[in-house]
Design a protein around this nucleic acid. Structure first.
Lengths: 147, 147
DNA sequence: CCAAACTGGTTTCATTTGTAACCATTGAAA
DNA sequence: TTTCAATGGTTACAAATGAAACCAGTTTGG
């Protein structure tokens, strides 16, 4: 019987992780260098920038973060005065989070950088490759969603 | 002037990370539940299982881990007596790492589980989707490699 | 030779993370 | 109502991580 071997280089979970890690690491330089943000903080900023006001729970769902990450990221952005909390009228457990002027300014500054990053990444690919990436990612998302 | 907005859901770095995180998290249950391994430990096991003897540096390159991660993973696997170190004859800084019987046994046990996991993941996709995933991942790897 | 500069690998320290316990509030059930 | 389960969010603690300092050993250049 032949001893079964696993080619790590071809193993999808490994490749995917490695890829995401590399991309994410490179992208993180943008928000880390510029503002010293962590990834959860960046995502919080992005979520609020995109949606306006949100609750912490909604933020967690929207950006796939555990509630403790959200909690800490929100605390930090609040400390920076990039967002404010307003208690919900009906349910006093809930807080609505909104970016301040400074928060919006930071968001507005980040968006073009983020878009440029993505554009440059995709620019390294041919049209067919880009199509493969997009549909491959979508397919996996769908497959995982209904797992 | 329209305020630029970034759709996090469509932003490639985010999607990629989210995807890899989900897959990796699910897969980690296999080695975590079964043997209480961390990801670096699993990768070390996988690397040595695949290549036989390796140095720590080689392991780091092969499996994309920082040297401190490798160092700690190796220390733990050594503690479990899953691997042994043999000093290099010529260069006394270098150690060659090899799985013990117990290490190999664990590796042999994990390989089919890993393969099954990957197979089942891909089985949720259509043939075209699978092709897109494979070529998309490869394209991104190539694009990042030559960056 | 001998002092730098370099490399393989480990350790230290500060930061980040995950899990679980927790507090306050709300909703549902008795 | 009173009680009990559930929910929004925070906190405490342990484990995982990354950066930089570190300790051999090795190589290179003078």
């Amino acid at each position: 019987m032949k001893p079964e071997i696993l080619e790590l280089q071809s193993f999808l979970p490994y490749r995917l992780y490695r890829l995401a890690d590399a991309v994410s690491r490179e992208f993180s330089r943008i928000y880390k260098d510029r503002h010293g943000l962590t990834r959860p903080e960046w995502r919080t900023l992005a979520g609020l920038g995109q949606h306006g006001t949100m609750t912490a729970t909604a933020l967690g769902e929207q950006s796939a973060m555990h509630k403790t990450k959200v909690s800490r990221a929100v605390a930090e952005l609040e400390r920076r005065r990039w967002l404010v909390r307003t208690p919900d009228e009906k349910d006093r457990r809930v807080e609505h989070l909104t970016l301040t002027k400074a928060g919006v300014a930071a968001y507005r500054e980040m968006v073009p950088l983020a878009k440029a990053f993505e554009r440059e990444l995709l620019a390294r690919l041919s049209t067919e490759q880009r199509a493969a990436v997009v549909s491959g990612v979508a397919a996996l998302e769908a497959a995982l969603g209904k797992s």
